[in-house]
Design a protein around this nucleic acid. Structure first.
Lengths: 138, 138
DNA sequence: ACTAAGGGTTATAGTAACTATAAGGTCAAT
DNA sequence: ATTGACCTTATAGTTACTATAACCCTTAGT
């Protein structure tokens, strides 16, 4: 019945989250305080490992650490409805889409700029001209 | 031949960049130090106004303030080739595209998640399940 | 037993691009 | 003279880390 445990470095290697970051997550209360070895090393359990994976996957979806804190606490109440979780996912989806919209606009504008430069001197450069003046381009 | 000048608040209203931000730009050397009225108020010229518009437009394309610092110094050398500027624009375009790629992946994954939830309890929630376990989903 | 490499520990400061707060001075109008 | 809207400075907070310093622990090799 020996629970296997990980050191912070081991956990880092296994999850792809750096040791410093893991300690940081603990400090801000995203991970519970780890138990310690006799010499003071942090020791992590399987549960910690799972929690960290949850965090990593959520980060990969663009959730903020605050959002993740909420997600985790929602996920912890096994009996409750998952409506809260779904709401958060949808909210995140909207944020991502809004960010996508902005970035696509930037992409188009940048493409337009690269297209209009013909490689002369700055004083004739349409790029610089566009950036400088022309209050248009909303 | 009276040069008209703006106070920081006027400049803010005209450019859509907040007064605090304008002062901040001055502090980090993105804008030259403004001249002052007798009572110590900052006074801005048309040139400052243009420079600020340049900054705003560049920010709108996603350039970092450091990039903008470089862009400005490139743009200031009227005689030089605009190759440097073009390079920066292309580099920025690549960054934007890479960010777009990431965000599109997030969008798809989030869509997938919203689709799979059928509104039961957390313990049956496919979203939570997906976030928790399933090391797959690269 | 000694030592060196490669872990681990803490605390503090730095990053980007602002935003917020406090505590005060100035200007125009009533 | 006083109000309200402006201006000034300095300092701290934000997000999610990263970097640095200065030190302790473990393990393998000599």
């Amino acid at each position: 019945m020996s629970e296997k445990s990980y050191t912070v470095g081991r956990l880092a290697a296994d999850t792809g989250i750096k040791a410093v970051t893991i300690r940081y997550y603990e400090k801000i209360g995203l991970l519970p305080e780890a138990s310690r070895s006799e010499s003071g090393y942090r020791l992590y359990s399987e549960a910690d490992y799972s929690r960290l994976l949850f965090i990593r996957r959520s980060r990969g979806l663009g959730f903020s650490l605050d959002d993740i804190r909420e997600l985790l606490s929602l996920a912890d109440r096994q009996q409750d409805s998952c409506a809260g979780v779904e709401a958060k996912v949808e909210q995140q989806l909207e944020q991502v889409r809004s960010r996508l919209k902005d970035l696509r606009a930037m992409e188009h504008e940048l493409e337009r700029l690269t297209a209009c430069c013909e490689g002369g001197a700055i004083m004739d450069c349409r790029i610089v001209e566009t950036l400088s003046g022309e209050t248009a381009a909303r």
